[in-house]
């Protein structure tokens, strides 16, 4: 077992040496794989950030319930207490008509004009924050329909259309990213497979001799598998670098945009976990590609 482990380590390091003997060819392969892996990784980061943005918006999906002007503040407060018992409502804030008017007067710039009004045209308003896990457009629509039926209620305002469109688009994009990812993963497998196939052809003599002295298929295949592993790991590392640099370059402008919208949002990168996953995906795909190629092509090489 120890000898076996030592052999594997030796092969692992040995193949690295073998790759460094043809640095240009190896680097080119790694470069192509890196780009192929970086593309879906970048898109993934993009989608995750877009999701984070929509997560922010979900929280902001308050339902404004304007009561009829005939409903006075006491009735409004009683209604608020009744509604608070609903399980789909997290909190309710009552904006009394006078307070609303006062605020409007101060901030709207129509202060002078409003002085002329004899009574308050603004109704009492309940601002309802739904429970978070119910904050889907469909659930909100159902809730606002129920609220609309209450006799005290005049208008329920909920603008979910844009959220629905956004989420639908996001869903489409996410699916496209998955598709692109799968296609590029296939591409990585093919790239490695082709490189390994050429490598096998170049090492025909070595493979023949190894088989002649009693090397098993698994033994002959091993260095090629490790080659694929290194190509994939190198490609993954390069992809991680590409994503990190892209995120770093975009972080500033994105923060500026978010700031202009009054948001604290900042671009999130892959993170350590995502990076490790990218490395693992690269190494795994590299290994898979070389496994397929080596299994197919090594069988054909037999001593003559």
């Amino acid at each position: 077992m120890n000898a076996w482990l030592a052999r594997h380590l030796q092969t692992l390091v040995g193949t690295l040496g073998r790759l460094s003997q043809q640095p240009m060819a190896s680097l080119l392969t790694i470069l192509v794989m890196g780009i192929a892996l970086a593309l879906p990784a970048c898109l993934n980061v993009l989608v995750r950030n877009a999701q984070a943005v929509s997560g922010d918006w979900n929280g902001a999906l308050d339902v404004s319930v304007y009561l009829k002007t005939s409903v006075n503040a006491d009735t409004a407060e009683r209604l608020m207490d009744t509604l608070k018992r609903r399980s789909d409502i997290k909190s309710i804030k009552l904006i009394k008509a006078e307070a609303a008017l006062k605020e409007f007067r101060e901030h709207s710039g129509f202060g002078e004009a409003l002085q002329a009004l004899s009574d308050n045209p603004l109704p009492n308003t309940l601002v309802i924050t739904p429970v978070e896990n119910l904050a889907s457009p469909a659930a909100l629509n159902a809730m606002s329909d129920e609220l609309r039926k209450l006799s005290e209620v005049d208008v329920v305002q909920l603008d979910t259309a844009w959220v629905q469109r956004y989420l639908a688009m996001l869903d489409t994009v996410r699916r496209m990213v998955t598709l692109v990812g799968l296609l590029l993963a296939l591409g990585v497998v093919v790239i490695v497979g082709n490189t390994i196939r050429l490598d096998i052809q170049n090492r025909r003599d070595e493979i023949e001799v190894t088989k002649l002295v009693g090397g098993s298929d698994a033994f002959v295949r091993r260095p090629f598998l490790y080659c694929g592993f290194w190509y994939g790991l190198g490609g993954g590392l390069l992809a991680w670098l590409v994503v990190s640099i892209s995120v770093a370059l975009l972080a500033g402008p994105v923060r500026k945009i978010a700031g202009l919208y009054g948001s604290q949002f900042s671009l999130a990168g892959l993170g350590v976990l995502g990076g490790v996953a990218l490395l693992a995906a690269g190494a795994g795909l590299g290994w898979l590609g070389s496994y397929v190629a080596a299994t197919r092509h090594l069988r054909a090489i037999e001593p003559k």
């Binding site: 003599d205 070595e206 023949e208 001799v209 088989k211 002649l212 002295v213 009693g214 090397g215 098993s216 298929d217 033994f219």
Partner: peptide, 17 residues
């Protein structure tokens, strides 16, 4: 492979790597 390990082979072109 296991069978070939019991036998030593020498070739005209020696087949060294």
């Amino acid at each position: 492979p296991a069978y070939r390990r019991q036998l030593g082979m020498v070739f005209q072109d020696h087949k060294l790597l």
